[in-house]
Nucleic acid binder design. Sequence first.
DNA 1: CGGCTCTTTGAATCACATCAAGGCCCGTGG
DNA 2: CCACGGGCCTTGATGTGATTCAAAGAGCCG
Lengths: 253, 253
Amino acid sequence: MTEVIKLAATQCGHTFKMNCSNCRLNSLCLPLSLDSRSMTALDSIVERGKPLQKGQYVFRENQPFNSIFAVRSGALKVFSSTSDGREQITGFYFPGEILGLDGISNNRYESSAKALETAAICEIPFDRLGDLSAQVPSLQMQFFKLMSREIGSDQQLITLLSKHTADERLATFLLSISARNARRGLSATRFRLPMSRLDIGNYLGLTVETVSRSIGRLQKQEIIEVSNKDIHIFDLSTLETVAHSKLLETKEG
Amino acid sequence: MTEVIKLAATQCGHTFKMNCSNCRLNSLCLPLSLDSRSMTALDSIVERGKPLQKGQYVFRENQPFNSIFAVRSGALKVFSSTSDGREQITGFYFPGEILGLDGISNNRYESSAKALETAAICEIPFDRLGDLSAQVPSLQMQFFKLMSREIGSDQQLITLLSKHTADERLATFLLSISARNARRGLSATRFRLPMSRLDIGNYLGLTVETVSRSIGRLQKQEIIEVSNKDIHIFDLSTLETVAHSKLLETKEG
DNA sequence: CGGCTCTTTGAATCACATCAAGGCCCGTGG
DNA sequence: CCACGGGCCTTGATGTGATTCAAAGAGCCG
């Protein structure tokens, strides 16, 4: 790694140029597969604001839509309010992932996004991204794929909610977090969950109590170990078995 | 290529040119908001095959992805298979609606699509659509919006599955069909459901029996009348009340 | 050290699933 | 045209996983 790029470390107070080219996440994020000229062009439209504190909003339901956002660090939850006023979390977003796509269709956000912990995000004005996409075919394709992936993952959640038990949902959820950690070069078996049990339950269509009990069951079977928000997955493959409802419950006196 | 363009044959033996410009659905479908030049360009890449019979597939899960499809007539279901081999229906598709978008991300379809009744579809090769989108900004935008709308509707289904009772799910389902009929100039209150109770249940995360009982309850409350697959909604606004769980159950001896 | 939210655990209840049986619709063939 | 057969749909009885209600313990921040 050359010394100019190294400057990405912040707290010292020096100014430095954070951009897509030197972003550690560019191989996961929108820039994926762009040549350096195109990446520079993309870079020029990206806006990087100050970090969000826990609880702060990136955007709110019904606000006019202008930009999509990429997570640089931290974690966010995206949720919309149901007809009877409660909230439904539709996704959690980690570094390298992009949110706000649901706002395109009606020019206003159809959900809200809130920081689960201190988070840094990149704002990408959508009109400028559209212009650039028309000029850079690989960017257009990358963006189509991004939206398609969002559709695919929503449909997986639909299946999860529709056809699976509490334990299967929780196991699938943990595996999803695990895989996304691995993608960013972090441990697939030890990590910290940035969201509360309430949020997990909300996302998975379960109550807090059920989430807590389900965690308890997985722990008792020695598949995971949990201490507060810290998760240790002992055996990924066993957890996968649980997720796919192929584990017959071990009867014990 | 110009005059060789697809001469769809009618039963009477006459040939005529079916195209986007003369399609009754063009104001609902992908061509929406295209000028006539652009519509002609789009038209030149659309392929119109012979109608599908009930039960025939448009595409199957894991097949290589090449095209997206627009429904011209009839109805389709889209479903994917769960980890334990059952199927999960993720959507029903009616004239003017577009399917296959989930295939873009990995270059293979992540779901299968099957005709619920005789159906006519337009095939749109995706690589050519991508090229054209880069040249026609309004087409690119229209396609972005289309994908975004799919994301939005998937998220609504997530909320429905996660937070709502059987009666609310069924009411919401009927209202969705109703609204989509209205959009195409058909009756919002009288229509025929092209799918079986089993399919409805599968889609809504319920068993057939529960669907049947839920229909029974709505009928007893004189909100709808059902005869086989024929639905008559007496009062849309009451049905909306049910969908939003604001109807207190009427106790009766 | 409060006061707060978050989490866990237990007991009772409920909405929906499951199991079971009978009826209806519709295509097919006599 | 009617009889037969196989899905599809409905209805009832019973079972169960998750919710609800309740309460106490654990972590966190001022």
